[in-house]
Write a protein that binds this DNA or RNA. Structure first.
Lengths: 134, 134
DNA sequence: GTTCCTGCAAAAGCTTTGCAGAAGA
DNA sequence: TCTTCTGCAAAGCTTTTGCAGGAAC
């Protein structure tokens, strides 16, 4: 909790109750939620919370590097407070998104020419164990 | 041209003029166009062409494996007639999408457990040589 | 006082769906 | 005939923007 406030201040983000709630939700639910999911989950506790605030908060978290923005399917942006390098797997049947990790020194393809790479994203699609066996 | 017709028939797709035009556009323009880009480009030649047809055609091409569906940014689906394994790089400044290739035997992270992987996507973001030097 | 933040309402952008007519098998 | 395909219009969803009031610094 303390840490969240400190991280916010470090990035010139005011630790408003709404922002704290969104960040806390991401930390407690590492399920790569969408903005809508977060909004729906937090609404009962923050009756006046608006989607606008959720969207803006998530964008801020992404800009400051406090969260990752994940795009696997069009039309749904997901967020992840785990900003370490890791991949994502989306089950095409149940829609759930799983993490998968790899060593820090894992070789990634190089690019020819003078490209400046800022983000690397890796995602797979397929069937999760549960859906596969059904 | 002949090949396109044959590929279509192989997958039970009728080679309508509209579909041929979309497929041909993808082959001639390996620039990962969006549905809108394709629609805009083809409209002059097919005055009655509708977005619906473009969207449906692209979906069909994806389902039959004749094209790849690429999602990097939310809100824009891109398509690529090159269905070989390769990565994509999107320049955050100019928006252009570049291909990058890697050896067929390039090691990709493994997943623990009984996941059935159907698609692997790799994309980078950053600055392209032109935008970097500007 | 000035800047940042919230949230309502509206707009925007991309994609999908319903449906009727046309074309092909 | 029966299935597939096209395309107009409308709807659907997610996300963004304009703006006014409020809070923090």
């Amino acid at each position: 909790m303390e840490t969240i406030v400190q991280n916010f201040k470090k990035h010139d983000l005011r630790p408003s109750p709404q922002r704290m709630a969104v960040m806390k939700f991401l930390l407690v639910h590492p399920t790569h939620p969408t903005a809508e999911t977060i909004y729906t989950a937090l609404s009962p506790g923050y009756p006046t919370l608006s989607r606008t605030t959720v969207y803006q908060t998530l964008e801020k978290l992404y800009e400051t590097g406090l969260a990752q923005k994940i795009v696997i399917e069009d039309g749904e942006m997901r967020f992840d407070a785990d900003t370490s390098d890791h991949g994502h797997f989306k089950c095409v049947t149940c829609g759930e998104v799983f993490d998968f990790f790899y060593p820090a020194n894992h070789p990634f393809p190089e690019m020819e020419g003078a490209f400046e790479i800022q983000e690397k994203h890796l995602y797979y699609k397929g069937l999760c164990p549960t859906c596969k066996s059904t």
